[in-house]
């Protein structure tokens, strides 16, 4: 689809810029803008909830945490001295990229009705979720009923991470 091409170009530019740039504070902010562009690409593909999480976590939380880490370190640490890139990386990464592109050629087109995901499991959820779970929203039914343990453990992980961050970052901790 040609309409997302400018956003994809901007995505590549921001991702490359975050790696290339010399000082870490600008790298953090470039990563934040990368997250915004990525969220827009998700929204363009119709995955609005993923876009929202990307904007909250990628552009909001991650930027703040990275900045906190940078301000916790000394001034000397915020400038990168890069070792020269080895030849195996320069040769290997383009080959890996070509392999990935070759693999992506076999994927079904976006929104393809005949793809495996659309004919195998999705109709089952769409047809039976109201009877089985008494929930009008299919996404909620999948998240909170069919995959409730998955969601439960994800919540545990997020709360643990939050508690750990609060413990590390609290002021005047002894």
């Amino acid at each position: 689809m040609i309409i997302e091409l400018p956003l994809l170009i901007l995505l590549v530019v921001t991702a490359g810029g975050a790696i290339m740039v010399k000082d870490l504070i600008s790298a953090v902010f470039i990563l934040g803008s990368y997250s915004f562009v990525l969220a827009l690409v998700w929204a363009l593909l119709g995955a609005v909830d993923v876009a929202f999480v990307e904007a909250v976590v990628g552009a909001g939380l991650a930027t703040v945490f990275f900045l906190l880490t940078l301000f916790g370190t000394t001034e000397k640490d915020t400038h990168i001295r890069r070792p020269p890139v080895p030849w195996s990386v320069i040769l290997g990464l383009p080959v890996l990229g070509l392999l990935l592109l070759y693999g992506a050629g076999d994927l079904p087109a976006f929104g393809d009705i005949a793809s495996a995901a659309s004919i195998y499991i999705s109709p089952e959820y769409l047809e039976n979720s109201v009877e089985q779970t008494r929930t009008p929203n299919v996404v909620t039914a999948v998240l909170m009923d069919y995959r409730s343990f998955d969601t439960f453990i994800e919540t545990i992980v997020i709360f643990t991470a939050g508690i750990a961050c609060a413990l590390i970052l609290r002021k005047g901790g002894s």
Binding site: P6, G17, S26, F29, S33, V37
Partner: peptide, 18 residues
């Protein structure tokens, strides 16, 4: 979309060079 993306590039320059 293209125009606004180009506008984002202008801001991006400020983020990189600021």
């Amino acid at each position: 979309l293209t125009t606004i993306t180009i506008l984002m590039l202008v801001y991006f320059y400020r983020v990189v060079r600021g």
